[in-house]
Design a protein around this nucleic acid. Sequence first.
DNA 1: ATGGCAGGGCACCCCTGA
Length: 256
Amino acid sequence: MQFATWNVNSLKVRLPQVLEWLQSRPELTALALQETKLEDHNFPQADIEAAGFHVVYAGQKTYNGVAIISRLPIDDVVVNIPGFDDPQKRVITGTIGGVRLVCAYIPNGQALDSDKYPYKLGWLEALITWLKDELAQHPQLILAGDYNIAPEDRDVHDIRKWEGGVLVSPPEREAFTTLIGLGLADAFRAFEQPDKSFSWWDYRGFSFKKNAGLRIDHLLITPALSQKLTACEIDREPRKAERPSDHTPVIATFSA
DNA sequence: ATGGCAGGGCACCCCTGA
């Protein structure tokens, strides 16, 4: 079993790359997508199903939007965070092969003095509250997505350029630590990894070429899945494509 | 310190991203 997360920054633009990537990874069970930027009536469900996949999605115009593409059926689908009134489409959850997969696009926050920053912190609080319930019901759970949080300084190419801003602020990192405190593990850090491993690079200033990136896309997993975890990697290849997303996929592999 | 790139809406300049 293999699960991945990828912020595609517009599925309309990236659909061919996503299908090509899925075909290049026949062992992948399911892929969590963020920033589809498509209203549901424009979602390319038929194209994805024609390629042999199951798919569920929840989107809106211009911003946000999430989806799960899977080789196995997707059951018990929930959109957004139950009990949290949010007009933005940022979460979709389903059960795939006995694994509860939560696909989340955590708010960016924009700036510490922006209204979007308290929205981000409140959003994280609501996610954590709801996740406690989900975890009680699903021993095998993955919180996959674009967290918009670089958990540690080693997840930032140059902390001096980012400190004092969103993605690295202490309250956000504390929310990440709270998630770990629920018993979740950062699948990527379960293994020794190369220094300067990132999942996002700015489009500007040749950031990818300079590897001036951040690690903000994560797969947090429950103890029952940690026992089965055999690998976790960031696939940098899609970032080299023409018209790439600024994010690249993160993949976790589990033994049966 | 600033802007730089990309996508989308909408109607070409603005918003947002990270």
